[in-house]
Every structure is written in structure tokens, then in C-alpha cells.
């Protein structure tokens, strides 16, 4: 993905198979959405999940020899933030790609820190 600093919110794709991928992000003190209390603001979690899906899409495009897509969030639905992660937390996110119509992809994302559920959401991303 052509996502560059300052808001890179995915460190790596841990694995990807079929329509499911796992991604990782370590929260550092340079995180764009870090608040004064040392925790990440909720929109950062949304961006992390969106970029996870975009990275996964980009990964698929690379494997297929296609150009890297640009992704936008079209809709966030049923987002729930259970806890705001803190500096040093290692987040693992499961993204599942669903139905796709005319460039709009439905996806679900679930972010955990260890066993603790941090956030989950449905999202629609535009890819062009």
C-alpha cells in the first residue's frame, strides 16, 4: 500500500491464506494516534484494521502480479473499542475479506493484544 509516514499503522502481515490474514502492529511512542495518557485513540484502531485489509489486498495483488491498489474506507459499521492499547502493546489483527461488488469490499476485523480483545468492526473499503 502506498501508505507512508506519519500514519503507518501496520508493521507486518503475519500470515495470509484464502480470505483471512493476520497482521501485527507494535504500539510505539511515535504512533500518530497516541494520546497524552500513553494510550492509542480509537480512530487509530480503525486505521490499523483498515490498513491491515489494504495490506492484505496489496499482498494478493503482488502475488497476482497486479499493480498495488489504493484503498479508502467507505464505511465503518458495528465498531466496538473494548480497551485502548498502550505503548509497548503488540497487537494482532485478524482480517477476513467478504463479498466484493464494483470495487467495494466488505471485511471484518478483530484486534487482540495477547488474549485480550481490543476492538472489532465491520468495514467497507474502496479499492481502486
Amino acid at each position: 500500500m502506498p501508505q507512508r509516514n506519519p500514519i503507518v499503522m501496520v508493521d507486518k502481515i503475519l500470515d495470509a491464506e484464502g480470505d483471512v490474514a493476520h497482521t501485527g502492529l507494535t504500539v510505539t511512542d511515535r504512533n500518530y494516534f497516541l494520546e497524552e495518557d500513553g494510550r492509542m485513540a480509537e480512530p487509530g484502531l480503525i486505521e490499523h484494521i483498515a490498513q491491515s485489509a489494504s495490506a492484505f489486498k496489496g499482498h494478493k495483488a503482488l502475488l497476482a502480479g497486479e499493480p498495488l491498489p489504493i484503498g479508502y474506507i467507505g464505511e465503518v459499521k458495528k465498531f466496538h473499542c473494548y480497551v485502548r492499547p498502550a505503548v509497548g502493546d503488540e497487537l494482532t489483527t485478524t482480517v477476513t475479506l467478504g463479498a466484493e461488488v464494483n470495487g467495494v469490499t466488505l471485511m471484518t476485523g478483530e484486534t487482540r493484544c495477547g488474549e485480550v480483545l481490543v476492538a472489532d468492526t465491520q468495514m467497507k473499503i474502496f479499492v481502486e
Partner: peptide, 13 residues
Amino acid sequence: DSLSLVDLVAVIE
């Protein structure tokens, strides 16, 4: 609309 169309497809799928 273009966004919610995918919801319909997803429900059926």
C-alpha cells in the same frame, strides 16, 4: 447505493 449493495450481496452469500 454503491456501498450498501455489497451488504445485500453479503447477506445472500
